[in-house]
Design a protein around this nucleic acid. Sequence first.
DNA 1: AATCCGCGCAACCGCTTCTCA
DNA 2: GTGAGAAGCGGTTGCGCGGAT
Length: 257
Amino acid sequence: MMNTSVTITKSSRVRKGAWTEEEDLLLRKCIQKYGEGKWHQVPIRAGLNRCRKSCRLRWLNYLRPHIKRGDFSSEEVDLILRLHKLLGNRWSLIAGRLPGRTANDVKNYWNTHLQRKLTAPHQQERKYNNALKITENTILRPRPRTFTSSSAKNVSFCSNKSITNTVDKSAHNNEILNICEKPTGETTSVDEGVQWWTSLLENCNETEEEAEAFGSFDEENMSQSLLHEEISPPMQQGQSGNWDDFSADIDLWNLLN
DNA sequence: AATCCGCGCAACCGCTTCTCA
DNA sequence: GTGAGAAGCGGTTGCGCGGAT
């Protein structure tokens, strides 16, 4: 769907609105040449009259290779439901477990499909009751973190499976790493962290029937797909530059099972 | 055929967090 | 320790499309 209206703000003369094919081409070439990152330099390098945010968003949500289009599969929907129940509106984190899907996609899908279903009239009462429950359990909201070489040393407690050599600056990885951090920001020992997660998931199970009421929730398939992903990670090399190593969240993954 | 209206999605905006000097 | 700039995120908006009337 193309938005044909394009505005250029007077103050900054930065172009807004729908991207043209020409702009896409320029941005793609720029990223191919210089790589992702340094977004503030991208508009200049690409010769685009766009702000850095716009460039970044366009790349991440539309131009990046291996972006999956079309309907979400039932497996993907199941995964979104489970992860959302666990993490709340952490779209980037949820999208990180869905190969080829962007945070924007997941967010849009949730807002247009899943949220509506969950608040359908016949479920309104249940939903309300469950919502009350949820407020009792603080939704996990890990914040994005990036790790400097020094700070990386302090997260070794998370590495019971393998946070080994990859301490890159990807937000996705860092968020996963950061899951071993309590919402308050204080860190924990490995055991503490696992206990904390376990109790969190136990609480999550209280709302399990809500997801089951959804109809498409298939526990068996889910387990299999999750199991499969442990063996064969969902985000393949090259699908996202931010997912070179996601083994760090396998503990989270086990807990999800 | 014309109009209305809801839906889906791309894009924008404001805020938070991180990095670095 | 602090402030500025960059990066990233989630919430929201707005437009085009397609089905309903």
